[in-house]
Design a binder for these strands. Sequence first.
RNA 1: GUGGUCGUAGCUCAGUUGGUUAGAGCGAUAGAUUGUGGAUCUAUAGGUCGUGGGUUCAAGCCCCAUCUUCCACCCCA
Length: 459
Amino acid sequence: MSSQKPSIPKGTRDFSPAEMVRRNFIFDVIRNVFQVFGYQPIETPAMENLSTLMGKYGEEGDKLLFKILNSGNYLDGLPEAESGMRDAGSRLVHLTRHIAEKGLRYDLTVPFARFVVQHQNDLVFPFKRYQIQPVWRADRPQKGRYREFFQCDVDVIGSNSLLNEVELGQIIDTVFSRLGINVLIRLNNRKVLAGIAEAIGAPDKLTDITVAMDKLDKTGMDKVVDELIERGITYESVEKLQPILTLEGKIKEKFDTLTSFFANSTIGQKGIEEMRIVLQHLKDLDLKNKFDFDITLARGLSYYTGTIIEVKALDAAMGSICGGGRYDDLTGIFGLPGMSGVGISFGADRICDVMSELKLFPETLQAVSRVLFVNFGTEEEKYCLKQLADLRKAGIPAELYPDPSKLKKQMEYANRKNIPFVILVGKDEMEQGQMALKDMRSGEQKICTPGEVKQILSW
RNA sequence: GUGGUCGUAGCUCAGUUGGUUAGAGCGAUAGAUUGUGGAUCUAUAGGUCGUGGGUUCAAGCCCCAUCUUCCACCCCA
């Protein structure tokens, strides 16, 4: 029989017990914060109908969707004409439509929008929900980038109030404070970006402008100007844009400059006003982490319409570990117009990477028994089983070695698993109704009554 | 999708201009020690050198393809 080398798909990972303990620590903190802020959990299927997912993430997004081949003979009913399609690109699109109708979810926001529309009659609005589940992207893996990763989303839908933005800011601040990660929280507003596009006389080039602007901190002004020209922005417009790009200093000064810049742009004024309100509230709340207004922040999927948020770790080189924003009409495409929502997504895997790099995990994180009963044989087993049940009833994680193996082997087992205590019960101890409790750290061992054991272990 | 990079024992890695039977450390297993782990000593096991082709008298080493790892771009958590 030939054996194959075991492996998993590119960009996916197994998680060992030690890793799971750390991951669960993060999930627990995040879930706890979400709940304290009054959000309710939901889950949606790993796969969605492709029609739900396609076209929601831009051209690039469609390419990154994992598509699921139809079951059965998926070539059945393939129109003959398809094979005659001239270029491979459009042939692929048409083919895909016939052989795949499901795809793995790309994020949690679009499935959430679908969920809201589908269950609108059962939901109470504004609906505050959180969702912690894996998503899949057919990206090339690299640092902090996986093909399967967990997002932790919080959204509130059905409310235009900027208080929701403020609340999300508090959630971000609380989560990262609890995890011990220093972060910079950058805010911007799509309306400000639209205002800029309008003010420089290129309102139709919003996307091109934002994509180019976003690279400012990475590539520098020259490259950004090059790209703007390349994307068809006129010299005149670029010239008007430049002083805005280099805007620095206090938030208040930025506001002042932009307010005059937006003299003839109502949408720009609206954006500034929104930013002012959100940032003022956040300032009054006196949070631990720094919030900044950054007009070069353009990220976020194409469906964002208002506030956009991005969070980066200050002490580690890693992409954004949390991001989100407001979307005014995501449910519109599913037939429920006029429903504004705002939400953010924490990238659990990147947060985990950052915390590992910075050694921020508590050392006490472990998922092992507190005590191991050594197995001496049939008689002793029976006795230990009862003691074991008692300890477990008291909430003490405990286990009995399943085989009457050599003592050395059993002790080594406890040692390697980092089980801090071992209980040895042989004939003598059984007769006396006592147990030998050994501290694996110090090596000390003493005879105890069951009550004493419970007391020592329940510490 | 574009560009680069890695792959030799369970793990971390040596391996000369292509030349006999591919090595080390750690780990694993067994024993020294039949009711006591970590330390020490001894012995043992473990590799179709990522995979498939090619060049050569001869390939871990050279060439091609492919998969995988990691990194950058694009984009993003």
